[in-house]
Amino acid sequence: MSAPGAGLDAGLVGLLMARRWGATGRQTILIDAGTAGGALARRLGSAMQSEYLPAERGLPSLIAAREPLTLKLMADHCYSLDGAAGLRWVLFAPDHPDGAKYAVRWLSQRASELMAIDRERSIVISCSLPDDEDDLLPLLKVMPRLVLLAPARTREDAEALQLWCERRGLLDDSHSGTAPQRAFVVIVGPTVLEDDEIEGIAKLPVAGHLPEIDDKKLLQMSRRRRDRASTREFDQVFELCLTMGA
């Protein structure tokens, strides 16, 4: 999930994470839970010279099926990004923002089914959470692991991050089912603070640092297997997140 001002698109980072985990043989499902509507499908389709139609295979078609949420059902409504290998599935958001917000609420009501599917195939949910957006909160609060992309250039930024998370109930570690059991922050961009300072202020463990990269380059990185040097920082963060969340 990306916080306001993060400087990285959560959906594109999710694609990179799924690609990295897929390279190790880990089967993933990336769920596009962005509430802006359809941007990831359009951008990836343009880059891949392909067409992804969420109404035919995506969250809209999954919801319209009106069937119990299972791995088999999701297989029928996901696109596979690596063909027959089937390691990376993507479930795209609806095209319209109203439909995307409805889809997020629909997913929130099926959190237990998602957790059961996650035991069979790793689920990555990508989303951005604007200041005035609360539709995602019920879903985020039941996720077993939350990775937050956020800036922390100064102490003031870290304090603002702590308040932003606290207002949304994302820092409750009671394991009561009302908040993520494990939450981490990945710092995007430069900072004058040490990790232990950020952790002390923001009340979140730091899972690593990533550079600010424009969306076009990030999209290219999510598609290409070569040029491992450009993705090394991302790969290290993804592996650390997986270890810290174990």
Rank of each mutant, 00 (worst) to 15 (best):
V142F: 00
L53I: 06
L15N: 14
F234R: 14
L210G: 00
A41I: 12
L136N: 12
R228P: 05
K141T: 01
R110V: 08
P205M: 10
Q109R: 07
A23Y: 14
A84E: 02
L30D: 14
G177V: 05
D227A: 11
A93W: 07
S222D: 00
E159D: 06
V147I: 12
Q109F: 02
G83M: 08
R167D: 02
K141R: 15
S46K: 02
E194N: 09
T178F: 12
S112K: 06
E56M: 03
S2I: 11
E51D: 14
V104I: 01
G14T: 05
R167K: 12
R26W: 05
D76H: 14
L240R: 15
R42W: 13
L71R: 11
S126A: 15
R225I: 04
Q236L: 14
S126T: 13
E113F: 08
G38F: 01
S122P: 09
T191H: 02
G58L: 06
L53D: 08
A3E: 11
G22Q: 13
L136Y: 10
G45T: 15
E133V: 05
A229I: 14
G45S: 07
E51Y: 11
P60M: 10
D196T: 00
S80E: 10
L171C: 04
G45P: 07
G45C: 06
S174W: 15
V237F: 09
S222E: 13
V186G: 06
A18Q: 02
H96N: 06
A64N: 06
D118K: 09
R57W: 12
A100G: 02
L129D: 01
G83W: 10
A207I: 01
P138N: 04
A183K: 07
Q220V: 00
R155P: 05
G25H: 04
L171D: 00
G189R: 05
A65Y: 01
L81F: 03
R223H: 14
G14H: 04
E194P: 04
P151N: 13
L53G: 08
W21D: 13
S174R: 15
T35K: 04
H77Q: 06
E113N: 10
R19F: 03
E51Q: 05
A116T: 05
D172V: 00
T178K: 15
S230G: 00
A93L: 03
L15G: 11
V104H: 01
P54E: 04
Q27T: 15
T28V: 09
D214K: 09
R43I: 10
I213H: 00
Y52H: 12
Y79F: 08
R26Q: 08
S46I: 00
R19D: 02
E166Y: 15
K203I: 03
G34S: 07
E133R: 07
